[in-house]
Design a binder for these strands. Structure first.
Lengths: 138, 138
DNA sequence: TCCGTAGTTCGTAAGTTATGAACTATGGAA
DNA sequence: TTCCATAGTTCATAACTTACGAACTACGGA
C-alpha cells in the first residue's frame, strides 16, 4: 500500500536480465532449446534477425500461445543468453546473441539449427503426405 | 497376487526401450543432454566407448548419485536414443548410438560434446585457481 | 485524461524429477 | 539346490518446474 514512485527510468525498475557471455552455460542453452516453442522462436528469430517483437510469435508452432506463456519463454531464452531484448516504446525488440555464443561455443548453435531444419523438413513432408493429421494432435 | 510365471526370456518381460533412429528427436536429445549428470555420463561414455556399466557412473560429477537416480538417467538417455543398453549377465553394457545420430543429425553431437569440453576446461581451470570451492556447492 | 497495445507478475493447477525402500534377475558359492 | 551378493528397476512421494488466466504496469497516442 505504499505510494509507489513512478520513475522515469523503467529499465531500472524492471531490468531485463542478460547474463554476461561468460556466464552462459551449455546446460542453459540446451535446456532453453529443448522446448519446441522456444526452439521455434529462436529459429525464426535467427532466420530473420531484424529484431522481432514478442507478439510476432503468438502462432509459432501452429497453435496459439498465451501472452503470459510467451513472456516466460522469452525470459527463458534471455536468461539462457540466447537472445537480447530491448524495450522500445510499448514493445520489445528481440535479437539473437548468436555472434557472442559462436565465440564461446563454436559451431554449437549452427549444429542445433541445422538439426532443427532437418526435423522440420521431415515434419513438413509428413504433413504433406497425409494432410488430415497435423504432426500429432487429434 | 497371481502366481507369476518365471520366464526364461527376461528381455521379453522387461524389455529395454530403444527408439528407432527415425523416432529420435532433437527435442529429446537436447532435453536429455541438458541435465549435467546425463551430459557427464554421455561424454564419458563417448570418450571410452568400450561399453561401460551403469555403476561405473556413481561418481561422475563429484558427488555420489543414488542407484535409482542413475537408473532413471540411463533410461532417459536410452529413450532419447542417445545410448543403447544391453543386459549382460547381472550388469548392463551401455554404448552411445553416435554413429546413427550422426547420420540423422550430422554434426549435432560433436558440436555439443565440443561445447561440453570447452566448459569443463573452464571449470577445471577455475577450480585450480581457488581450490577451496568446488565449482558451486558449499 | 483516457484508451489501447505490449508485456509482466502472481497464484495455482498440472506435470516432471530425485530418491529411499522394496523388488527382480543373474551368477556364483556352499 | 539353496542361498547370497551384485546390478538394476520399480514404486511412492516430496520437491521442483511449467503453463496459463487474471490482474497489473508502461508507453504512446487521441
Amino acid at each position: 500500500m505504499e505510494p509507489k514512485v513512478k520513475t522515469c527510468y523503467p529499465e531500472q525498475v524492471r531490468p531485463l536480465i542478460h547474463p554476461s557471455i561468460d556466464d552462459v552455460t551449455l546446460e542453459g542453452i540446451l535446456h532453453a532449446l529443448a522446448d519446441p516453442v522456444r526452439a521455434a522462436i529462436y529459429a525464426q528469430l535467427a532466420a530473420s534477425d531484424g529484431a522481432a517483437t514478442c507478439s510476432t510469435f503468438v502462432n509459432v508452432i501452429d497453435r496459439e500461445i498465451p501472452k503470459s506463456t510467451l513472456s516466460q519463454h522469452f525470459r527463458a531464452l534471455r536468461e539462457a543468453g540466447l537472445v537480447r531484448s530491448e524495450r522500445n516504446g510499448v514493445e520489445m525488440r528481440n535479437k539473437t546473441r548468436c555472434r557472442e555464443i559462436e565465440q564461446r561455443f563454436p559451431g554449437l548453435i549452427p549444429a542445433i539449427m541445422k538439426a532443427y531444419m532437418v526435423e522440420s523438413g521431415e515434419k513438413a513432408r509428413a504433413a504433406k503426405r497425409k494432410p488430415a493429421k497435423k504432426t500429432r494432435a487429434a
